[in-house]
């Protein structure tokens, strides 16, 4: 699946509530790139944003001038991390999860590296 297609998919939780949209895909690089061949960049989870927006300007990581950051975050609403093992199914336009909305971790709590 192409990344540009996945971005913006609606995210629906186990109760059928809409949580938001897919804003980014969290990858983890476990080993050196060229050596590990195809397996280097593993999909670890999705980043879900309450008010769907495909461009975050990198603000989900909280860099940038304070004021601008607040403005962007006010517009985005909540930003959460959805681990890949909680993704149930990806169909045209939607991602269904096995978790519930209030169980998701805010992305802020995740380590950057």
């Amino acid at each position: 699946m192409r990344l540009n297609e996945l971005l913006g998919h609606r995210v629906i939780d186990a109760d059928g509530n809409e949580l938001g949209g897919v804003a980014d895909v969290r990858l983890v690089q476990d080993g050196p790139l060229l050596v590990s061949m195809q397996r280097a960049l593993r999909v670890d989870g999705l980043i879900v944003v309450e008010n769907r927006s495909t461009r975050l300007f990198g603000y989900e990581r909280h860099v940038g001038p304070e004021l601008l950051r607040r403005l962007v975050h006010a517009r985005l609403g909540g930003v959460w991390y959805l681990p890949w093992h909680e993704v149930d199914e990806i169909t045209a336009g939607t991602v269904t999860t096995t978790s519930r909305g209030n169980d998701l971790r805010p992305l802020e709590d995740m380590a950057r590296y």
């Binding site: 300007f57 990198g58 860099v63 940038g64 001038p65 304070e66 004021l67 601008l68």
Partner: peptide
């Protein structure tokens, strides 16, 4: 430019300080 000048991925420890960000904004 203003955003990237704040991003350690690009500029390491040479990010904008609060004064430069205030003036930049």
């Amino acid at each position: 430019i203003l955003i990237v000048a704040n991003d350690p991925d690009y500029v390491g420890r040479e990010t904008n300080g609060p004064v430069r960000n205030a003036v930049g904004l």
